[in-house]
């Protein structure tokens, strides 16, 4: 049952990165769109993600519940030493979640929109940025449980070049997912060309920020290169992600929207796989060589068993409903009746 729980944990993190990530990306590309394109991007995105946007963010709750029920030591260690980036991420989550409804559900479209929109777009960037920082800090070996002063216990645990570049990389992944997703939602050929241009740019940014991660890791003396390329599965994952990226670039303007989305999803899955596989079963690496492991720091057997059953039963309800929701709103274009505003 422990492995069932671990698979659910990994899958919910992956789904949060993919679905929640594409959601964040929508805000990020709106932030970096020229004035003329902002409205088009926003409208297309809203139609695409409106019905499922709340559900996309539930994966984070599932992941965090699995952690605090099944792996309390891991949850509390991260909570204590990465308190500050967690708070920053939470502020981003609050700002983004509420600004999204505010701007779509305010009965009057007036100056308040000028407040909601920047809150929405900036928090769309800040949230995954800190999410990336938290993910990087959990393995960068900077968490020091014996630290005597505030800075080394609560700030240098996450504030370093490597974590910051992983934060940027996460942001660019989100933007990339959103641009690929939005191509298939375009209503006109002109829009589609616009979104393809954005997609090409985001691919470039992902590659640059990915390079920065390796450079920062080198500077911070974190053996990321060895982690990922040291073992065969990591190499296979990265090579297949690269091949699929080449296929995707070839398919970009060939109207193969479903393929584009599948390939983008595949690449991000492979990146997450390569980044986590190498440490498994460890999930937190600390300064003095202590490691928190999914196979050693779990709750008692009965807890894991009931958690596993709860997740299995839950997924029987959630997955069919979620798939039907996505299916119905992807196949039927909006009817004549106004739904959002």
């Amino acid at each position: 049952m422990l492995y069932v729980v671990i698979i659910f944990l990994w899958a919910s993190i992956l789904l949060y990165v993919l679905l929640g990530g594409a959601d964040f990306g929508a805000g990020i590309i709106e932030l970096f769109s020229s004035k003329a394109n902002k409205a088009r991007t926003r409208r297309t995105m809203y139609e695409a993600i409106g019905p499922i946007w709340e559900a996309n963010h539930m994966w984070l709750i599932i992941a965090i519940v699995i952690l605090f029920v099944g792996f309390p030591k891991i949850y509390t260690t991260v909570s204590v030493y990465l308190h500050i980036p967690l708070v920053c991420m939470l502020l981003g989550i609050i700002a983004r979640g509420t600004a999204f409804v505010f701007r779509n559900y305010d009965a009057v479209e007036d100056g308040m929109q000028k407040i909601y929109t920047p809150i929405f777009t900036w928090s769309s960037l800040i949230t995954p940025f800190f999410l990336g920082i938290i993910a990087a800090s959990s393995v960068s070996g900077r968490i020091d449980t014996q630290a005597a002063d505030f800075l080394s216990a609560y700030v240098f645990s996450w504030f370093n070049l490597f974590s910051v570049t992983v934060g940027l990389f996460t942001v660019s992944i989100c933007a990339y997912l959103a641009t690929i997703f939005i191509i298939g939602q375009a209503d006109s050929a002109a829009d589609e060309r616009l979104f393809i241009r954005k997609a090409k740019r985001s691919i470039l940014i992902v590659m640059i920020s990915g390079g920065l991660v390796f450079a920062a890791a080198y500077a911070d003396q974190i053996p990321v290169f060895n982690w990922i390329f040291g073992r065969l599965p990591g190499i296979v994952a990265i090579v297949s992600a690269s091949i699929s990226l080449l296929i995707m670039v070839y398919l970009l303007d060939k109207q193969k929207h479903v393929w584009l989305r599948l390939l983008a999803g595949f690449q991000v899955t492979m990146i997450l796989f390569a980044a986590t596989y190498t440490h498994f079963p460890n999930i937190v690496l600390m300064k003095h060589g202590e490691k928190l492991s999914l196979l050693l720091h779990q709750g008692q057997a009965k807890t894991i068993e009931s958690l596993g059953y709860a997740l299995l039963i839950g997924s029987l309800f959630i997955l069919p409903a979620l798939i039907y929701l996505i299916y119905i709103f992807q196949t039927r274009k909006p009817g004549s009746e106004e739904s959002g505003h």
């Binding site: 519940v65 029920v69 099944g70 309390p72 009931s306």
Partner: peptide, 11 residues
């Protein structure tokens, strides 16, 4: 967490 987590996981 491991003791009273059941209702949270169902929730």
């Amino acid at each position: 967490g491991p003791i009273f987590g059941m209702p949270f996981s169902l929730e």
